[in-house]
Amino acid sequence: MRIDLTGKRALVTGSSQGIGLAIATGLAEAGASVVLTGRDAGKLEQAAAGIDGEVTTVAGDVVTDEGTAALLEAVPDVDVLVNNLGVFGARPALEITDDEWRRYFETNVLTAVRLTRAYLPGMRDRGWGRVQYIASDSAVVVPAEMVHYGMTKTALLAVSRGFAKEAAGSGVTVNSVVAGPTHTAGVEDFVHSLVGDELPWDEAQREFMRLHRPQSLIQRLIEPAEIANMCVYLASPLASATTGGALRVDGGYVDAILP
């Protein structure tokens, strides 16, 4: 398959590193003009320098009204919106405070809703657009150690389906990508927090998968580029009949035939 996104502008939130950066890189390789966002201007510039293509950066905190307004002023229209920004961490369910519940919801869900609300009308008016939400296997198999995170990813599945209905018949598709346990710097810290800092990474990863993610059929962490491959396809004209879906890149982690 040949994927050509030449002439399209794509915005990926939380894209200075990890899955977001991999998605932005993949979109740029397909020819899209890519906008990277994040709070750290230095990290954004470093990330942009590693991408071969047309890349701009907008530093700011889109969890805030001010940060969102600045982004929308700098980038008033996009053809592809990938809502990747998210926070995660382990916490016993009964110890999660109201403030933490709010922070997780506002960061992982409300930012995506706000940006969709801002960009979807323009896509619909132009008759073409792609909106994506990076969800997680935790949306379906809620982990005991981070119920608050799982809740936000479940919410994104509903948000995605709802906005897909809003975009019905317009040429705009809206989907969520259910990412499985993925290898990022943040996940390395998370893995070590659960299995111990003394283990070498390869051993720590195997122990983590054995103890905490035994359902995985590939029995390893997924690489960010593998998530990006699905996102690039969904952003392309080739995916014109795929909308309202929850597409899994989870290594077979979710034990179900249907999403």
Rank of each mutant, 00 (worst) to 15 (best):
G60Y: 04
D40C: 01
Y253W: 14
V35Q: 02
T64A: 07
L157N: 08
G67S: 09
D40K: 01
Y133K: 03
V174T: 03
L157D: 01
D79K: 00
E29F: 01
V187Y: 02
T111D: 05
A164C: 11
R2Q: 14
L211I: 12
V177H: 13
L27E: 11
R91P: 08
Q219C: 10
V113G: 04
A93C: 11
V58H: 00
E54I: 07
E66K: 06
A93T: 15
H183P: 08
V254S: 10
V35K: 00
M123C: 00
A144Y: 10
T37S: 11
S236E: 02
L156S: 13
G42S: 14
V195N: 06
R130F: 05
P143D: 05
Y104H: 15
D250R: 02
E54A: 07
G245H: 12
D77K: 08
V159Q: 03
V195Y: 06
A239V: 09
W101N: 07
T243F: 01
M230I: 10
A246S: 15
V35A: 03
E207V: 03
A69N: 11
D65Q: 14
R210F: 10
L211D: 09
T116N: 10
T25I: 02
S136I: 08
N229H: 12
A164W: 03
G162P: 05
Q215G: 05
G14C: 12
H183I: 06
E45A: 13
R9N: 08
T68G: 14
A22H: 04
R2V: 03
A30M: 04
G18M: 05
V78E: 00
L194E: 05
V178P: 13
A228D: 13
L247M: 14
A47Q: 06
T57M: 07
M123T: 02
I23Q: 07
F190H: 12
V109A: 01
A32Q: 07
W101D: 02
L71P: 14
V147D: 09
F208C: 04
A155I: 01
T243W: 04
P259C: 09
M209G: 04
Q215F: 13
A158N: 13
A235I: 11
K8Y: 13
P259A: 15
L81P: 09
R39I: 00
A30N: 06
F190E: 05
T97C: 02
A10F: 07
E106D: 15
L11A: 00
A59C: 12
T13E: 02
E207F: 10
A10Y: 06
P259F: 12
P143T: 10
I218R: 01
T57A: 06
G196F: 13
E66W: 03
G50T: 14
P214T: 12
A225R: 15
M209T: 07
V55E: 04
A179K: 05
M123F: 12
R91M: 14
D65Y: 09
D99G: 10
L94D: 15
F208M: 08
G196Q: 04
A41K: 06
N175C: 10
Q17G: 05
G169Q: 00
G244F: 04
G245F: 05
A168C: 09
V178H: 08
L110H: 15
L85I: 14
